[in-house]
Design a protein around this nucleic acid. Structure first.
Length: 768
DNA sequence: GGACGTTCTGTTTTT
DNA sequence: CAGAACGTCC
């Protein structure tokens, strides 16, 4: 059995698997079978008789952890379940729940996501009556995050002359105080933000020797995937945990370090050997994934970076096709080129949709790509993107869940105290915040004892608060006995959320209702999957790690295997591979990003990102750029990315335009769009926004959902003006005749989309 | 307190 | 351009 699976490894890989004792660093080039080595290494350990719960294996995403677990279970069997395996955040959240009381937290602490953190910061800035343009929540959170990553507490921050001077220079003298208040509020709320999970783990291990010893002893073998992307806080946790047995194995590729922006420190991997003097190093240099062409191009590009560990990635795979570089006229044409190419390749190579991926630097680039794919009826899926759990309706319901579990959760309270409307407005809430701060308690405590605080509130408001407290308490009382689904369903209806959503019959409203239903289905699954013999699968158990999930961690069954082209950011593509990869938007200032071309380090990170992108391809890589790109309604001219020049020219085939290739789909369905000019030595066209007259011609009365708009909905119509409209795709064309002869306004809106889009409609601009 | 309308402001990547 | 924040009116 043992030799059975080890036979699947090459000699490099096998060495890395069998060196179980002492510090080990595995430098794994792109496509070198890193995951295989990690899984076999763990399987090998278990085979040798190591108890699964003594193995701590940290991965970068939940998905990677899940896949690895499955593969190990396949090799070894069921007790793979008992491995400590997951992301840093999820594993240490789990550990902290066990030890929470030691650091003064309740075991059911809430995990704040970025939105919660930002809302809290906004509130703090407002309470301190500071200028919220100088103190922007996102930049405050960024700085707080990097401080926590460096393990610098507010107190230490205050005592650091350099930080204080920095803040003075940057005119944010109050940062230290904000940081302190923020932490205090988190604490009062029984909440941690993402960085706290690692920070507090560090503190637990640092300040509680008995805990340190316990976990050092427990985790005899530590494995870390994607080590190049660990930050200082994570490094310190590892250092503390591994200090006793020194059985720490890190796997990574410095060439694929792409998370410096969130504190990842590439020095961790570059200096591993210094930190652990007896390190055995293994290099996996054979690439099993890509063609010779792709490997050669990637090697050449990454060689421009200065900071690197020496290694030579090679492959015995076939030469393969050249990398195609195409130039487009605009971002929408680029989308069409890519979609058309996918369409054609599907036929010529007999390929399935899911063999294709389109990668881009920023999420905003997906839209023109989606449009083009839709036009050719190519099914696609956006991988990652906004998490299911970020949607408003989901967050609202989950806020009730959170509040039921932990009443002190300020952000959950803020979300739902007046949703559905129950007459507790901002003024009341603000007064309670002040009272809470004055008395050094949570807002919930104020509400619970509202009468004792003698707040200047109307009797009615006080009554409403009492009702709300009673409502939440009634939920909490049921929590231990109700299974998660029953509890969730009960909360959804009793809180009034269901009623609120049910009243909204617009398509969006219906959609929101479906999302809620989906969340409840998730609860049902969770409840049903639970061990019948075991403890009741309560709602708080369900909620434990949910804040740490991404949209890829749900819905896996249905969507995962669907035959669809995948669209994603390059960051999200790490660890994945595809036969045909398209990388769009290779324009200077976009990729590399204009934010990142100031320093060598940043530029090198962008280059590593490009390296990651190109090495996702197994058979063929296609690169493209546009000479103009829409941004904020304007079209800006663009230069090709410097990375294109860094690819060896003998690996490249330049493709002018797919538009000239009329082999398929020559119908005129999008003939209205500009085609790529055949000659390129013309200066890039810059489209100007259409001239507008700010004059308000017409206002729109409320339109009931789905109903077509007609003259009776319009008020303030210019004298003599007439409105005609017809269907045009998903929107409508409105033609106005009147004061301005031949003037025309085209307004696209989806039926029922009554908020912003219809308001826009009311402010018609005349296109001359 | 809420609906409606206007003004402002973004835009890198994510556990 | 789109969404968020803010302001005004009932």
């Amino acid at each position: 059995m043992e030799n059975d699976f080890l036979a699947h490894l090459n000699s490099e890989q096998r060495g890395a698997v069998e060196a179980t004792e002492g510090p080990v660093m595995i430098i794994a080039g792109a496509g070198s079978g890193k995951t295989r080595v990690l899984t076999y290494r763990i399987a090998h350990l278990l085979n040798k008789g190591v108890d699964p719960y003594r193995v701590l294996s940290l991965t970068f995403t939940n998905k990677a952890a899940r896949e690895m677990k499955e593969r190990i279970a396949h090799l070894i069997g069921d007790h793979a379940r008992d491995l400590w395996m997951g992301t840093f955040h999820s594993v240490f959240a789990r550990l902290l729940r066990r030890e929470a009381t030691k650091i003064g937290y309740p075991a059911n602490f809430t995990i704040y996501d970025t939105d919660d953190s930002k809302t809290l910061l906004k509130s703090i800035v407002k309470e301190m009556s500071l200028n919220d343009t100088a103190y922007k929540a996102s930049s405050l959170l960024g700085r707080i995050s990097s401080m926590k990553t460096m393990l610098i507490s507010p107190k230490e921050y205050l005592n650091d002359i350099q930080y204080i001077n920095e803040d003075r220079a940057a005119r944010r003298e109050h940062f230290a105080q904000i940081y302190e208040t923020y932490n205090k509020r988190l604490y009062k709320s029984g909440a941690m933000d993402f960085d706290d999970l690692l920070y507090h783990t560090n503190m637990l291990l640092r300040d509680h020797p008995e805990s340190l010893l316990k976990y050092q002893d427990m985790f005899r073998y530590i494995l870390v995937d994607e080590y190049q992307d660990t930050n200082f806080s994570q490094y310190m946790i590892l250092r503390q945990l591994a200090a006793r047995h020194l059985n720490i194995c890190v796997v990574g590729d410095d060439a694929q370090s792409i998370y410096a922006f969130r504190g990842a420190n590439i020095q961790n991997i570059l200096n591993f050997q210094k930190h652990y003097p007896d390190t055995q190093i293994f290099k996996l240099e054979q690439n099993y994934r890509s063609t010779k062409t792709i490997v050669a191009a990637a090697n050449q590009v990454i060689s421009k970076n200065r900071d690197q560990l020496q290694k030579t990635v090679w492959t015995s795979n076939e030469e393969g096709e050249k990398i195609r570089v195409s130039r487009a006229f605009s971002d929408s044409e680029e989308g069409r080129l890519i979609a058309q190419s996918i369409f054609d390749t599907r036929v010529s190579k007999q390929a399935k949709n899911k063999e294709f991926a389109i990668l881009y630097r920023t999420n905003a680039q997906s839209r023109p790509l989606e449009e083009a794919l839709r036009k050719l009826n190519i099914p696609y899926r956006i991988y990652g993107g906004v998490s299911f759990y970020q949607r408003k309706e989901i967050k609202d319901l989950m806020a009730y869940f959170r509040l039921t579990i932990n009443q002190h959760d300020e952000e959950a309270l803020r979300r739902v105290i007046n949703y559905p409307v129950r007459g507790i407005g901002d003024t009341t809430f603000d007064k309670m915040i002040v009272a809470a701060a004055d008395n050094d308690v949570s807002i919930w405590t104020v509400m619970e004892n509202i009468a004792d605080f003698n707040l200047p509130l109307q009797t009615r408001a006080i009554e409403k608060i009492k009702e709300f407290v009673t409502l939440i308490k009634s939920f909490t009382a049921l929590l231990p006995d109700y299974p998660a689904y029953k509890m969730g369903d009960y909360i959804a209806s009793t809180s009034g959320i269901m009623k609120e959503l049910y009243q909204d019959r617009t398509p969006e409203g219906v959609n929101r209702m479906e999302n809620i239903q989906e969340l409840l289905n998730g609860l049902k699954d969770f409840t049903e999957k639970a061990d019948q013999e075991g403890p009741v699968p309560t709602l708080d158990k369900f909620m434990e790690d949910i804040a740490l999930l991404t949209s890829e961690d749900i819905n896996e069954d249905e969507e995962h295997d669907a035959d669809k082209v995948l669209l994603m950011t390059i960051h999200a593509a790490k660890g994945l591979e595809f036969n045909y990869v398209y990388i769009g938007g290779l324009e200077e200032n976009l990729f590399p990003s204009q934010m990142a071309i100031m320093s060598r380090e940043e530029l090198e990170e962008e280059r590593r990102l490009f390296y990651v992108a190109i090495t996702r391809a197994k058979k063929q890589a296609n690169l493209s750029y546009s000479i103009s790109r829409y941004k904020y309604g304007n079209s800006l001219s663009c230069e090709p990315s410097r990375f294109l020049e860094e690819i060896p020219q003998d690996c490249v085939e330049n493709v002018i335009s797919y538009s000239s290739n009329s082999s398929s789909s020559s119908n005129d369905s999008y003939s209205g769009f500009p085609r790529s000019p055949k000659v390129f030595n013309v200066s890039p066209p810059v489209m100007k926004p259409a001239p507008t007259f700010g004059k308000k011609l017409v206002s729109l009365k409320k339109v009931s959902s789905g109903a077509p708009v007609d003259n009776s909905h319009l008020t303030d119509l210019q004298a003599g003006a007439k409105v005609e409209h017809d269907r045009f795709g998903i929107g409508e064309v409105i033609t106005i005749e009147g004061r301005y002869p031949n003037s025309k306004a085209i307004v696209m809106f989806e039926n029922g989309e009554k908020k912003q889009l219809l308001l826009r409609f009311a402010r018609l601009k005349i296109l001359s």
